[in-house]
């Protein structure tokens, strides 16, 4: 009998789409029940959104002033407490889940499985290693709680239309005060979110400066796309870190991915291999990005982008 608990990711007001994708993965387990836990200062709004996802049995709302910001050291002991009632505890493989879930696992004295991309059975999974150069099949022990993260780019968000029960809960756990939240400096923008956008336009080192990177933003706005970047473009300071796509940045699966002035290093490609259509624009016809591109165009981006914008009307 499998009972799954998912730890919701949210910002205090909205449920992050990563949670609905984690739920899709959980539903592949054919478990007896799937619950979602919402840890927040006051999580009513978020819990409601979680309860509206189809396939959820219960939403546990754990309100506590200490839960206002998602600090792993504070959340982990609470999650570990709840884990006693479950066979599986899942989180998204986002920075939130990657920070939290290993800490939970260690408190429970068990290992953790990272980046589930396919569920083969309640204790058999596939996951990528070596920047996606290999995919392994892993068997987890069934005699202990399985703590795992889900590679959200491998899953579609679960549909809405459910009406699970929301239960307020207080968890009795000793919470540390050695870790304090300072601030979150976000590149909050009106643009679509990189991790859930249907279209993404990404720029690389070739853009040459933050000013010229505006070309990428312009094209993205034109087609309603989110903006991404290679590591080289982030390192050079053209754009903030949260736009990095790749092995050590965000793993995404948009319907359309347009890579402009990006060479296509393996660390970048691993972040886009689930994209529907990949378009590459690069002046070097030998660039590795063309090996994975569905549509390739060789040429100078500074000429091509304005032409493309004009052609798209």
């Amino acid at each position: 009998m499998s009972k799954i608990l998912i730890i919701a990711e949210h910002d205090g007001t909205s449920l992050n789409p990563a949670t609905a994708k984690t739920l899709s993965c959980a539903l592949d387990f054919k478990a007896d029940s799937v619950d979602i836990a919402v840890f927040a200062a006051s999580g009513e709004a978020v819990a409601k959104q979680a309860a509206a996802l189809t396939g959820v049995n219960r939403v546990l709302q754990i309100d506590n002033a200490a839960n206002e910001h998602p600090l792993a050291a504070v959340l982990a002991p609470q999650v570990a407490r709840l884990a006693a009632d479950y066979t599986h505890v899942l989180g998204p493989s986002t920075t939130f889940g990657k920070d939290l879930m290993p800490r939970v696992a260690a408190l429970l004295g068990v290992g953790q499985l990272s980046d589930i991309m396919e569920v083969r059975g309640s204790h058999e999974f596939r996951r990528p290693i070596y920047a996606g150069n290999a995919v392994i099949t892993v068997e987890a022990p069934s005699d202990r709680t399985l703590v795992a993260t889900v590679r959200v780019a491998s899953y579609q968000a679960a549909a809405e239309g459910g009406s699970a029960k929301v239960e307020a809960l207080s968890v009795d756990a000793q919470l540390p005060d050695h870790t304090r939240f300072g601030e979150l400096r976000g590149g909050s923008s009106d643009r679509p979110d990189l991790q859930s956008a249907a279209r993404v336009v990404s720029g690389g080192r070739a853009l040459g400066s933050a000013e010229k990177f505006e070309l990428i933003f312009g094209l993205a706005d034109k087609i309603g796309a989110a903006v991404g970047a290679s590591r080289a473009a982030v390192d050079a300071g053209y754009v903030p870190n949260e736009l990095q796509v790749g092995q050590t940045g965000k793993i995404i699966a948009p319907e359309l991915y347009i890579a402009i002035g990006i060479s296509g290093a393996i660390q970048h490609l691993t972040g886009i291999k689930d994209a529907g259509t990949i378009v590459a624009i690069n002046k070097d016809g030998e660039a590795p990005i063309f090996e994975v591109a569905d549509i390739g165009l060789v040429g100078d981006l500074f000429q091509i982008i304005p032409e493309l914008e004009a052609a798209l009307g």
């Binding site: 304090r180 300072g182 979150l184 400096r185 949260e242």
Partner: peptide, 11 residues
């Protein structure tokens, strides 16, 4: 470096 941007914490 978090998905939403940059988070500052004190430990």
């Amino acid at each position: 470096e978090v998905d939403a941007g940059l988070e500052v914490i004190e430990v």
